[in-house]
């Protein structure tokens, strides 16, 4: 077999790997709290649904498909779903990205790279004690800011969303 053919085969495999990776790869933005707060403050027309979770949190993982469904089915101009992972940054490539890739296309995901929890939890909501899952619903134009500490089932999440959209 000629080296030319081998080279060609290798090239083909590399190209393939790159494309397959791209197709399944969920992007994760690593962000600081100021960036998240300014994103929340800039919100105008749509309803932001921001879910705080982690791959190691069982009730979070159980409710996650509800947010995927919400992201798929709702009108994108009416709702923006954002998953904020509290996994440690060192686990981004080893845990978070493989976890998301297995689930296919999903909502926009950020990893909140903040370790000093007491310095920022109150900036999200003063009633949040720090347990996850936790979800905040925001629409600044309509004056909506609703915080929920604890898990949702899909029915109760959807009910909450319809209530807030008709607000």
């Amino acid at each position: 077999m000629s080296t030319k053919l081998l080279k060609c085969l290798a090239f083909f495999l590399v190209i393939n790997a790159v494309f397959i990776d791209k197709a399944n790869c969920q992007e994760v933005k690593v962000a600081k709290i100021d960036e998240l707060i300014s994103m929340i403050e800039k919100n105008e027309d749509s309803l932001y649904v921001i879910n705080f979770w982690a791959t190691w949190c069982k009730p979070c993982v159980i409710e996650l498909p509800c947010f995927y469904e919400l992201n798929r089915e709702q009108n994108k101009s009416a709702i923006r779903v954002l998953l904020v992972s509290l996994d440690f940054k060192r686990n981004l490539n080893s845990n978070l990205i493989p976890f998301l890739n297995k689930r296919g296309t999903g909502p926009e995901t950020w990893l909140l790279d903040e370790t000093d929890y007491d310095s920022w939890i109150n900036r999200i909501d003063s009633t949040w004690t720090g347990s996850i899952p936790a979800t905040i619903f925001i629409n600044n134009r309509k004056g909506i800011r609703k915080f929920h500490e604890g898990e949702f089932d899909c029915t109760s999440l959807n009910e909450e969303i319809s209530k807030l959209l008709n607000h």
């Binding site: 982690a54 949190c57 009730p59 929890y117 939890i121 604890g150 898990e151």
Partner: peptide, 10 residues
Amino acid sequence: NTKAIGCSIK
């Protein structure tokens, strides 16, 4: 009083 992320009590 301080806050921290943690697992919710089941």
